Computed example of a mutant assay.
Amino acid sequence: MDIVIIIPAYNEEAHIEKCLTSLVNQIYSAKHILVVDDGSTDKTPEILSSLSSAHENLTYTSREKSYSHEPGSKIVEAFNFGLAGLASSYDILCKFDADLIFPNHYLETLHKAFEANSKLGMFAGFCSIEIDGVWQIEKLTNPDHIRGALKSYHQSCFRDIGGLTSAMGWDTIDEMKARYYGWDVETKNSLIVKHLKPTGLHYSKSLPKVFGISLFRMRYSLALAFLTCFKMALNKKKLDFFYKAMLAYLKSNYKKNSFLINEKEGAFIRKYRWHKIKQRLF
């Protein structure tokens, strides 16, 4: 089973070597690891040049800059840029972030999961962050949600969902579409990856606004958006996140042509979310 990995990278000189070293030393090797240098102004290109010359399955490509600086859009555009120029065929396609350190059995575990279940469309482990010298699972989302930093797709599933949406919320849309089209989505809590940068570090000011807008564009109802924003605010321990996100959601109400999914997919997402909420409550 051929695994291809695409890694968008922007000014990752502090982390990219650790990330790639952990991937090229996997027990089960990736067929191709492609890093997309997204207009870095630090030493990222030099590091990529050195590492790619030492490993046959590691290459990189560069582009001048992203066309967006919004959360979600920037990284997906870089990923799609790499995918458009990808010459390698694959069975499993991975989109990984450049600030991760993978255990050496990560790809082996991923491979076995897809081999064992022909309906498995998406799979991932969990991100952990270092707090006071201790690595702890980053608890920002539900355990059944695959973090945007750790995506992997069966080739047929990736085709069914139409690739990645270049917008905030893409990492929810992809797995919801996968479920909508009959694919399983699986996470494994014993498969832990070290995340070297806190999620949303560079987007802390704009994140509440784009988060609220993304919920509207995914056709969340008012009540569902309220609960989702409130939960995110609690996780981040920032009450103003809730107010800003909900305000953005409400202001988006007039932009009816900005939906990212169709009506049937939206209905599916709402039904799935309410089902999960009821499960947790009862």
Rank of each mutant, 00 (worst) to 15 (best):
155 Q>R: 06
223 A>L: 11
183 W>F: 10
210 V>G: 01
242 F>P: 07
15 H>E: 07
58 L>A: 03
52 S>L: 00
36 V>T: 10
252 S>G: 03
160 D>F: 09
275 H>W: 07
71 P>V: 10
216 F>I: 01
96 F>M: 14
201 L>C: 02
63 R>D: 01
81 F>R: 07
145 H>L: 04
115 E>Q: 11
60 Y>L: 02
174 D>M: 05
90 Y>E: 12
137 I>H: 04
18 K>H: 11
238 K>T: 13
177 K>H: 04
128 S>P: 06
66 S>M: 02
104 N>W: 00
49 S>C: 02
75 I>L: 11
24 V>Y: 04
63 R>S: 01
272 Y>V: 01
125 G>K: 11
141 T>C: 08
253 N>H: 10
207 L>H: 09
239 L>D: 07
36 V>R: 11
88 S>G: 05
125 G>E: 12
211 F>S: 10
95 K>E: 05
281 L>E: 11
11 N>T: 13
274 W>M: 13
178 A>N: 10
162 G>Y: 07
278 K>E: 08
256 K>W: 03
29 S>F: 02
164 L>E: 04
247 L>P: 01
271 K>G: 05
220 Y>W: 04
132 D>I: 07
125 G>I: 13
271 K>S: 08
270 R>S: 07
140 L>T: 05
280 R>K: 14
213 I>V: 13
177 K>W: 00
222 L>M: 07
137 I>Y: 07
241 F>R: 11
143 P>N: 04
106 Y>T: 12
272 Y>A: 07
20 L>S: 05
94 C>H: 03
277 I>D: 08
251 K>C: 05
43 K>V: 04
10 Y>R: 15
199 T>I: 14
22 S>V: 10
11 N>F: 08
209 K>T: 14
232 M>N: 12
36 V>K: 10
12 E>S: 15
270 R>C: 14
246 M>Y: 00
84 A>W: 15
186 E>H: 06
204 S>M: 05
189 N>K: 02
25 N>W: 02
21 T>R: 09
263 E>L: 03
21 T>K: 14
102 F>W: 06
251 K>F: 02
